[in-house]
Design a protein around this nucleic acid. Structure first.
Length: 217
DNA sequence: ACCGGCAGGTGGACC
DNA sequence: TGGTCCACCTGCCGG
């Protein structure tokens, strides 16, 4: 078994920054526009196997020029140098933009609100995974966390999984993450966080920080 | 200069 | 029905 104390040391080191980020997420949902929310969504489509910072800079540029909201696939493609699998991802973004629009206008906030009020966050995540190409459980969780609904969900990426194994929460890192297996591991991480008395959303930040040395997104 | 390692995975085919 | 495998694809950075 590994040193549990390390977790709390890191938590003390980063918690002010984490609180700040979480407040930003809440404010994004409270005060953000449909374009703001969709930008966060598109960011989460881009991040798999890519560098988060490169992705976020690309989003900022496409947001400023409005390409993200009105451009076609070619327009977006040109802005995504450095993003892995960008051809595919551009397609996913444009498809999702239709999904999140009503009468030709972005309505992602209204649509998500309805889902969350009617079904709750966990079920909303299922809906996103089922309906949107390019969103698996990992990225759907990432997105929901980044718009302020991450209190009880885990973002099981390679860093988190590595830490979970290191601390004996799971025996092995699975080769592939099916929905069923995702829930299983998420449940174990939830239990672990309860045992530590640290919220799941905090534990994610701590593990992410241990893996990368950053508190970015 | 070359090269392995890494970057917040996902869809779809196949069994 | 549910797991496993592989294509997708690029650029940067340290040895």
């Amino acid at each position: 078994m590994v040193n549990i104390q390390k977790i709390f040391e890191i938590w003390n080191e980063i918690k002010e920054r984490v609180y700040f980020r979480l407040r930003e997420f809440e404010n994004l949902w409270k005060y953000g526009s449909n374009e703001d929310i969709f930008s966060e969504f598109a960011f989460c489509i881009l991040t798999p196997q890519s560098k988060a910072k490169v992705c976020w800079n690309a989003i900022l540029e496409m947001k400023k020029t409005k390409k993200l909201f009105y451009g076609n696939e070619d327009d977006l493609y040109g802005s995504l140098k450095g993003v892995r699998f960008r051809k595919r991802k551009v397609h996913y973004i444009v498809k999702a933009r239709e999904y999140f629009s009503e009468n030709g206008e972005l309505a992602i906030k209204e649509i998500l609100s309805k889902f969350i009020e009617s079904y709750g966050v966990l079920k909303t995540r299922d809906i996103l995974v089922k309906d949107i190409k390019g969103m698996g459980y990992k990225e759907a969780s990432h997105f929901l966390r980044n718009i302020g609904f991450g209190q009880d969900i885990a973002i099981l990426d390679r860093h988190i999984l590595r830490s979970l194994k290191k601390y004996g929460v799971i025996d092995d890192i699975p080769k592939s993450l099916t929905g069923r297996r995702y829930f299983e591991i998420e449940g174990k991480m939830r239990e672990f966080s309860k045992r530590l008395g640290l919220g799941l959303v905090y534990l994610d930040f701590i593990f992410w920080y241990m893996g990368t040395g950053e508190v970015f997104k």
